[in-house]
Design a protein around this nucleic acid. Structure first.
Length: 316
DNA sequence: AAAAGCAGCAACCGCCTATCT
DNA sequence: GAGATAGGCGGTTGCTGCTTT
């Protein structure tokens, strides 16, 4: 018997989030930081369950999320990690700081599975796989044992750090955000999108604008002076790791290493620094080295497929 | 042009784990 | 040590928009 659902209360709203709800949630997290989700609906008046709030934040509202259009490079990494880790989407997502586990899971289910099926079907015709591992795209020396990767590192669920000092009043922040909503939506660059979720592609942009225009409201807040990295560590991380990582040789760079202890880069104030931090990795284990080497080969494979430059035409 | 089918994705559900008392 | 609970994760559902017939 599991616990009763957390959302069985009467009056809990379900379904798509509205812009107003998003703004309320973002404002609250702006002020208090992510975490303590149970208190979020209580303190904000949102008629949502805590899980729903957390999910909305982690999957859509937190800064640094990139949506849509997975690159062949990303695909290769996902495929490779999936073959190693199985459907541990959170673990896989930890290698894609810009992507959410939900996004990766959806992408896998809707795109990559099909691609691999075709890949394997063609492979079965032209180069039958060894009988021992017919469903895997890689000969997995590691899959037999427990592969300990960066799954437990804090990166994946850092949620971006929002500085609490940026705003000290939720209601005020909400009003400011609502007041600014239209301009941001207009400059979103995707105004043709029909749905809210995609037109507000990433509300963090809205949030970013809000933060820039919201001066600290007291001296204590001014003292903290968060750096750009602290405000949005994921963005800066991604700029470092992703923008230049277009070659295969950069693959290792794309697999983020945990920050050194003295560098709180990815840890905000938000309380997400406890459990996962305990599992930070040391130097690469042999299995990880193996993974990296294998990954490069597999990425080449998949990129070939995606580019349509392999000898066998692929119709995705 | 309308209907049917399909694909993509946001969100929910239920279980598991870690933490707190 | 046991029970309670919040947070986290993966599977699944259902809605929406697009494509095909």
């Amino acid at each position: 018997m599991g616990r009763p659902p957390c959302c069985d209360k009467v009056g809990i709203k379900k379904g798509p989030w509205t812009p107003e709800e998003d703004i309320i949630l973002v404002s609250y997290i702006q002020e208090h930081g992510p975490g303590n989700w149970r208190s979020v609906p209580i303190n904000t008046g949102l008629m949502r369950c805590s899980k729903s709030c957390r999910l909305r934040w982690t999957n859509y509202l937190r800064p640094g999320i990139r949506r849509g259009n997975f690159t062949p490079h990303e695909e290769g990494i996902i495929v490779h990690l999936q073959s190693l880790l199985g459907n541990r989407w959170a673990a896989i997502a930890s290698y894609h700081p810009q992507r959410t586990d939900n996004d990766i899971k959806n992408y896998w289910n809707t795109h990559l599975k099909k691609k691999l099926k075709k890949h394997q079907a063609i492979g079965a015709i032209f180069a039958p796989p060894p009988p021992s591992e017919p469903s895997s795209i890689i000969p997995t020396t590691a899959s037999a044992g427990h592969v300990h990767l960066h799954h437990d590192m804090p990166l994946s669920k850092d949620y971006g750090s929002l500085h609490p000092a940026a705003c000290t009043n939720t209601a005020e922040a909400t009003h400011q955000l609502i007041a600014r909503r239209s301009p941001f939506a207009a400059t979103d660059g995707d105004s043709s999108s029909s749905s809210y979720a995609s037109s507000m592609d990433n509300i963090s942009r809205l949030l970013c604008g809000f933060m820039k225009s919201s001066p600290p409201q007291n001296d204590a807040a001014a003292d903290i002076k968060p750096s750009a990295t602290e405000i949005n560590p994921l963005l800066s991380f991604n700029q470092y790791h992703m923008t230049g990582a277009t070659t295969l040789s950069a693959f290792n760079d794309m697999l983020p290493s945990p920050p050194p202890p003295q560098q709180p880069a990815l840890m905000g104030h938000s309380g997400y620094d406890e459990p996962r931090q305990q599992h930070q990795q040391g130097p690469l284990s042999p299995i990880e080295k193996w993974l990296f080497e294998e990954a490069e080969e597999q990425v080449v494979d998949l990129m070939d497929l995606s580019d349509g430059c392999c000898s066998v035409p692929m119709m995705f």
